[in-house]
Nucleic acid binder design. Sequence first.
RNA 1: GGUCCUGUAGUUCAAUGGAUAGAACAAGUGUUUCCUAAACACUAGAUCCGGGUUCGAUUCCCGGCGGGACUACCA
Length: 597
Amino acid sequence: MNLETTIGTVVMQAVETLYGLKTELNQIQLQKTKREFEGDLTVVIFPFVKAARKSPEQTGQEIGEFLKLNNSVISSFNVIKGFLNLTISQNYWLRALNDIHANAQFGITAATDDSELMMIEYSSPNTNKPLHLGHIRNNLLGFSIAEIQKANGWKVVKTNIVNDRGIHICKSMLAWKKWGKGETPESSGLKGDHLVGKYYVVFDKAYKAEIKELMDKGMSEEEAKKSAPLILEAQKMLLSWEKNDPEVRHLWETMNSWVYAGFDVTYKKLGVDFDQIYYESETYLEGKSEVERGVKKDIFKQREDGSVWADLTADGLDEKLLLRSDGTSVYMTQDIGTAKLRYNDYPIRKMVYVVGNEQNYHFQVLSILLDKLGFEWGKGLVHFSYGMVELPEGKMKSREGTVVDADDLMDEMIETARETSQELGKLDNCTPEEIEDIARLVGLGSLKYFILKVDPRKNMTFNPKESIDFNGNTGPFIQYTHARIKSVLRKAAEQGLRFSSIENNALIISEKESYLVQLLTEFPSIIRLAGEEFSPALIANYIYELVKEYNQFYHDFSILKEENKDLKQFRLVLSESTASVIKTGMSLLGIDVPERM
RNA sequence: GGUCCUGUAGUUCAAUGGAUAGAACAAGUGUUUCCUAAACACUAGAUCCGGGUUCGAUUCCCGGCGGGACUACCA
């Protein structure tokens, strides 16, 4: 039983014994005592004042006395206004720290054979252009959420649906065919995804020019967009693709293989991976047949022109297109097909889609449609909807060339980390490989932490110049603390110090030290909450607070030079446990921590 | 127009309905004969506006105002 439950239970007994008030455990408001007051945990007294028919101070006093009498964990208490501040005995903290130290997997609940399966879809790129800053937020959130759910005892399958077909792919293909002169990644020296992206831009430019020309001849913009020769040709290409035209298919396969090779490099560098990848080209037909099944079962309606619609007006939404009049599929069709395949492949209990908030409507509809089609997890699917990443000058726009490329960004961060290390002269004794390794850890740590510390739902601003900060509330700050602890532990090992557990249970420790232990004990409940709320930010903010506290302790207290052997032992155990929690916590964010930096 | 999200120091972010709204960056000032100064300490600075519910509201509700997204036979 954890501390909160223990104390909460005694508080329940107290108010029932003293005032005859029956309450539930979750009605007891327990919170950490604010730093400016004495105590570790605080009971909010206001809810009991009515039943007590006494002042908040008096009520607090009475409950406090009851608690102290009935639970040895509480060593003293004080009442300020309606707040009952409890001081927990040092002995309790020492025992708690021993437990933490003995458990290498502290905070983690491993999955068992009986655990249920959560499938998490993230990344989901289009194969017509390289990944950018927005994808980075998606990938980091998806990966981190998967790690967090694993730590909460779920079986997790990370999945990716690659949007490898459709008109946008045909645009790149067409431009390459017309103007590419056989250029390949090898011949151009360009990463495959960047090469294909280049031709997507080429298409867009030429298409825009055609539209302008037609408009100059007096055509309306809408009409011009529809009748420009290039777009007609791209549409024709899509039809040829659907008819399995060998030449189109071959070009498609070639260009996609370039893109995949490029994506692999980016994913690997970013440190994310997938257990199962689905391709839209393999799921959209399944989607069509699911839609047709829906038509037969009268869930969907076919119009005279052949198009198929779902009527969601009863659900407060509008009508949604599922198949075009020419029989081709749309985004929603594909998502239904993918769901069907996944349903066949895995015993999914919970399905999570990590997709930007501009798709809120889409997933609202998808949830209803899957439910109508009989997928048991349809109704309860989680659209993990995150906010946009904006630049100081506003939204990223590919047309205006303001898109921050994922590969470039990672390289820049790593380069900056390398320069900083050099300036500080920290790694003069390391091999070039070690230096490179640390630069990579720190550079990526900075980027990842910067993105994950923010509440996922909120739009966030990323300033490519100013956001690369290695001081303050940043990844490197946390990594640095870990490295510093490791350094102390190495020195302790050199001196042959042993500290597997704290032996003196009567040891007197400082307030700062007991507070650090208290923070460590909170780790499991933070992981639980992060899982329930789908919020890596909770983990990030927790680790930051822990690290800040530890740094103060490190500054104010000696570890290896402490003369009291028991105290030295305690501080080593405390430090090692802190390092371990930092490492575990950061791993839930997909961030590695170095041994030295 | 409708639906959804959002509004906190100069800036970027925190705060299960609780005590004097926390940090970081930027600005200014200190701390290394001492375990890594990528650290620590100090100074100054904020809840968009108006109502309501409550012992208590940054948080919940209503109404404004500002920002964003969606509302495609695009993905």
